[in-house]
């Protein structure tokens, strides 16, 4: 079994294994562009849907229904179905209203719409995905949530260009300020495609296609995406790297490569979740000590899916 390879990394492998076998509750995030937490709480209660607030994030509710899509709050775009732990990286990125934010692997949009809400739908949120079909899902999800600060592109994130947003210094506006459209980003959320082992509680089939070749192949893609995102983020800007896999090849090894190839550093961050530090040794490989600042979330620690999250500062 695939997950056995990670048992040396977790202290309590029995709890780890047991948690991976339990299904996850249905969780929704309040879309604060269209509704308040209180409004959603009352609407769910009126729908006879038990909603339990998630202690570490007041905008999340665990629901008693597994069909939140057939409720008024969903129809109105007040809620968005999102796995609890996947709400973490946008909070770590902490985008501010008015900033320029990049989401290179955006579809189908749970984290993108969360970023837009954290930005109060102000500023510029560039959402990219290489898959046109998935982009169409992203667009309809964003429009249902009432997001209007989104610019959507369809390219390979490894070669993403700021050109469609105009050159940084021109055209000079009539008022002499110039267009900020082509400037580098303040922040980027690099939530890459991965082997998805951490979603096994949601999709028990997630491990069926697993192979070490696939892990190695996708790690190359992840490195390319992360390095490009760092290049298009301004000096002093923030990049968050996240996956839903336990594989160090796709996590710490990718950070280690980015530290070697670009001007950035891995920085510590606070999280309300129970986590473990990034690992510096795996299968005979060693990684930069700084990857310890990354956080690993194992399913048994908070009764969530599995996750990996790192915060980087550019050019510091």
């Amino acid at each position: 079994m695939v997950l056995e390879r990670y048992e040396p990394l977790v202290e309590d492998s029995e709890a780890f294994r047991a948690a991976c076998e339990r299904p996850l509750p249905s969780v929704v995030r309040v879309n604060t562009i269209k509704a308040t937490v209180e409004r959603v709480r009352r609407a769910l209660a009126a729908a006879d849907t038990d909603a339990e607030a998630v202690d570490w994030n007041p905008r999340l509710f665990r629901l008693s229904t597994d069909r939140p899509g057939n409720t008024w709050p969903y129809y109105h775009g007040w809620i968005y179905g999102q796995e609890e732990v996947s709400a973490l990286p946008a909070l770590v990125l902490d985008p501010q209203p008015g900033e320029r934010v990049f989401d290179p692997c955006a579809a189908p949009g749970s984290k993108t719409t969360q970023l837009a809400a954290l930005m109060d739908d102000r500023g510029t949120l560039v959402a990219n995905d290489n898959n046109l079909g998935r982009l169409s899902a992203l667009r309809s999800n964003a429009e249902r949530c009432g997001v209007t600060n989104l610019a959507v592109t369809n390219t390979d994130a490894r070669t993403f260009s700021l050109k469609p947003f105009g050159a940084p210094k021109d055209p000079p506006g009539a008022d002499g300020t110039g267009s900020p459209a082509g400037e580098p980003f303040d922040r980027a959320l690099v939530d890459v495609p991965c082997s998805c082992e951490g979603t096994v509680r949601k999709n028990p089939d997630a491990l069926e296609e697993w192979s070490l070749d696939h892990v190695r192949g996708i790690a190359g893609l992840q490195r390319g995406i992360l390095e490009r995102a760092i290049q298009v983020t301004r000096e002093g800007g923030t990049v968050v790297y996240s996956t839903c896999t336990f594989a160090p090849e796709e996590n710490e090894a990718v950070l280690d490569a980015a530290l070697g190839a670009t001007d950035c550093r891995v920085v510590p961050f606070e999280t309300p979740l129970e986590t473990r530090p990034g690992v510096t040794e795996w299968n005979g490989e060693t990684y930069d000590e700084a990857v310890r600042h990354a956080r690993r979330v194992y399913p048994h620690l908070n009764d969530t899916g599995g996750f990996f999250c790192a915060k980087l500062e550019v050019g510091a």
Partner: peptide
């Protein structure tokens, strides 16, 4: 609600 050049070649 954001910034973009005019014209803009985007999805």
């Amino acid at each position: 609600a954001g910034d973009a050049p005019d014209p803009a070649d985007l999805e």
